[in-house]
Design a protein around this nucleic acid. Structure first.
Length: 690
RNA sequence: GGGCCCGUAGCUCAGCGGUGAGAGCAGGGGACUCAUAAUCCCUUGGUCGGGGGUUCGAAUCCCUCCGGGCCUACCA
């Protein structure tokens, strides 16, 4: 009987691009969903961007655009990246949608009605310059542990001594947003008394196979052994999110509306397709499966079931939790070039490679998986090109333009054996043990290659009397190939499509693996997948490598550690701004009067997003007023006193805020990527630059 | 500090109480030539992190130590 399955992946935060770490989850989920669809189950894949919270508010502010515009831009990038990896959502929405707001209100009313919401005073650090409350992550200062006193530590714990503290305990706390000294402020927050659902959560997490065993153990030992603390679900303005209807000035915390986004996004899909939301979310027949990373375990395994239970929605049938991705055995690193963005990967490599590699490495456990770049190359080349695709490559050509044998020849049980393997392969897929599924498929591929080796069609070809035998051998080879492609089609949809064309029979159902194909016309063979060139992978790493230099802001420019400039510099800058092809003469250059100048004053310009008003001294009483578009990269206070290079004879220009009497030199693309030029020590205001 | 998980051949992993511990890649030797230097056959290699225990029997269960990863709630 066909199952009804609703599947989600965690909502990616709309504060950065999709990278290969994210893709572990989306590829894993997409494979599982495609498998379910192939098996004939009714299955939909729902996801959305997670768009609220302080971090996004700050990022948008930094770019000088409204949050809505910021998240829209990110949305488009995410959708494009996912599509590039053949990740096929039935709906990809946003938590910042009317549908989501509506469902949030449904949950909120239910929590209120159940009497679970209470109000408490919360004292938090507040940034008086930026005008926002500061999460721990946004406060830095000196570790309060007397034995440590390490500088530059986050508000929650010290990474030098491991001491945990509250941000208010930090010595010399500083807001990482504005650099201002935070002050303590009190506000009323709304809390959900999740402890009142303790018994339910104990029962739900410990029985019924909803969680992997290690996760159930973890929750029991860590959270359920003591009373659950009240969950703070509101944030005072300013906050980018949804205002709480019965508590003006307060907003739902991003983690309140994010999981609700699963339902909000489903509602969008329902409205579009004429389906009923209750049929999917308030229906015991529907299985809800969440795929998430281990870092967000407690939100999904405690808060979320508690909310669903209270509001009367379906509880998850299963929460599938995966580990993190490491690259070459280490955390992804920008300076090593292993922090690889989806977009960068796609510029050089076929998405099928990564889909297969992840599939081969994934199990149903919570373990981290490692992307070993050398192994990646050898696995794709050996398993996919050498073993699987090679089956078609070495037989299809003998039958080009002809038909497969009219009845399936005797293959001494090979097809039947692989058909029987289908059972174990399907079970492995169902349990998310994709690695096992791949191993079984590859083993069948080995047997098929052995068969072809023994049957030696290349010898049959030479003998005109053996042409029908040749056709039989190739019919067997192509059928064994097709069978494996059907098994692989959740992982490699492109290969499945190509195979469908080759044999004139599109892959659409798992059952096709159980019956040999006969009589079909064989289309001319074209390469289905090419080997991974090592250089391509090297190019990806090279392009991903970034020199970790803090951009112009408060912390100053720290040289990157452990990175030699020769190996670290890419030509990304030149690609973005190619060298000019026209030349100038020395006389042309001499017309520009470049001078060293000292910044006497720097101030913000009311109403201007990008401009700072600078007062520069060329020595003595020679001063100039210059408006510079560097506000997003520099704080006024950091500029006063430093030396810059001024174009002293640039024609004055009237601007909306006053007249600019020159221009200062800087490198970079603009916005926060602005790096002022400065002379080495010893230069004096008024010196000409030659 | 507390907790969860992991530690099996050079590498990536399977096996998770019962025939002499396995696969792929890498290494060595050979065959073949249809195929994207693909494929096929043979082969080198491990006191299953250390120690103790339970058992007729342990890589597999328990304890302990060592090493690694992660989590620890107003972090997104």
């Amino acid at each position: 009987m066909s199952r009804k399955i609703l599947v989600t992946s965690a909502l990616p935060y709309a504060n950065g691009p999709i990278h290969i770490g994210h893709l572990v989850e989306y590829i894993q989920t997409d494979i599982w969903v495609r498998f379910q669809k192939l098996r004939g189950n009714r299955c939909i894949y729902i996801c959305a961007d997670d768009t609220h919270g302080t971090a996004i508010m700050i990022s948008a502010r930094r770019e000088g655009i409204p949050e809505e515009e910021f998240i829209q831009r990110m949305y488009e990038a995410h959708v494009r990246d996912f599509a590039g990896f053949d990740i096929e959502f039935d709906n990809y929405g946003s938590t910042h949608s009317p549908e989501n707001r509506e469902i949030c209100e449904v949950f909120w009313r239910a929590l209120r009605q159940a009497g679970l919401v209470i109000e408490k005073e919360v004292t938090q650090l507040f940034d008086p310059v930026a005008g926002v409350f500061l999460a721990d992550r946004f406060v830095k200062g000196t570790c309060p542990n007397p034995a440590c006193h390490a500088p530059d530590q986050y508000g929650d714990s010290c990474d030098r001594c491991g001491h945990t503290h509250s941000p208010a305990e930090l010595i010399h706390p500083v807001s990482t947003i504005s650099g201002a000294k935070p002050e303590l402020r009190t506000a009323r927050h709304l809390f959900v008394q999740i402890e009142r659902l303790h018994d339910f959560l104990e029962e739900w997490t410990q029985t019924g196979d909803h969680l992997q065993p290690e996760i159930a153990n973890y929750l029991k030992a860590h959270f359920l052994s003591e009373p659950l603390r009240d969950w703070d679900v509101s944030r005072p303005a300013p906050y980018f999110g949804f205002e709480i209807p019965d508590s003006p000035g307060n907003y739902w915390y991003v983690w309140f509306d994010a999981p609700i986004g699963y339902i909000g996004s489903t509602k969008q899909w329902c409205d579009r397709t004429g389906e009923s939301l209750d049929d999917w979310w308030r229906n015991p027949e529907t299985e809800v499966h969440h795929f998430i990373g281990k870092d967000i375990t407690y939100f999904h395994c405690l808060f979320w079931p508690a909310m669903l239970k209270t509001a009367g929605f379906n509880l998850p049938r299963k929460i599938h939790i995966h580990g993190f991705l490491t690259v070459n055995g280490e955390k992804m690193s920008k300076s090593k070039g292993t922090f690889i963005k989806a977009e960068t990967y796609l510029r050089h490599l076929d998405p099928s490679y990564l889909r297969y590699y992840y599939a081969a490495k994934l199990s149903s456990r919570v373990e981290d998986i490692d992307l070993n770049l050398e192994e990646f190359v050898s696995k794709v080349n050996t398993d996919l090109v050498g073993n699987i695709v090679n089956l078609a490559s070495r037989t299809a050509r003998f039958l080009e333009g002809q038909n497969l044998s009219p009845t399936y020849p005797d293959d001494s049980g090979l097809f039947a054996q692989a058909a029987a393997d289908g059972q174990a392969i399907a079970e492995a897929y169902e349990k998310c043990d994709f690695g096992k599924a791949m191993r079984l498929i590859l083993a069948a591929g080995d047997r098929a290659n052995q068969f072809i080796e023994r049957a030696a069609p290349w010898n049959l070809k030479k003998d005109p009397a053996k042409q029908s035998q040749l056709r039989d051998v190739c019919t067997i080879g192509l059928n064994l190939f097709r069978q494996l492609v059907i098994y692989l089609s959740p992982v490699l949809p492109r290969l499945a499509a190509q195979t469908g064309k080759l044999l004139n029979d599109p892959v659409s159902s798992w059952d096709q693996s159980q019956v040999p194909l006969v009589g079909n016309r064989v289309a001319p063979f074209e390469h289905m997948m090419t080997r991974v060139p090592k250089e391509k992978l090297a190019a990806v790493v090279e392009e991903s490598r970034e020199v970790e230099v803090a951009s112009g802001g408060g912390e100053g420019n720290r040289p990157a550690e452990g990175v030699s400039p020769e190996t670290a510099d890419t030509d990304e800058t030149l690609q973005r701004e190619p060298l000019l092809t026209s030349t100038v003469t020395i006389d042309d250059f001499a017309k520009i009067d470049l001078r060293v100048a000292r910044v006497l004053a720097a101030e913000e310009v009311p109403g201007a997003d990008k401009l700072l008003k600078l007062t520069l001294s060329l020595g003595g009483n020679h001063t100039r007023t210059v408006f510079a578009g560097i506000k997003k990269a520099y704080k006024p206070g950091d500029l006063v006193g430093r030396l810059v290079i001024l174009v002293a004879n640039l024609a004055p220009r009237k601007m909306r805020f006053g007249t600019s009497e020159g221009m200062i030199l800087a490198a970079g693309w603009g916005d926060d990527q602005v790096f002022l030029l400065a002379p080495d020590q010893g230069a004096k205001p008024g010196h000409r630059v030659h």
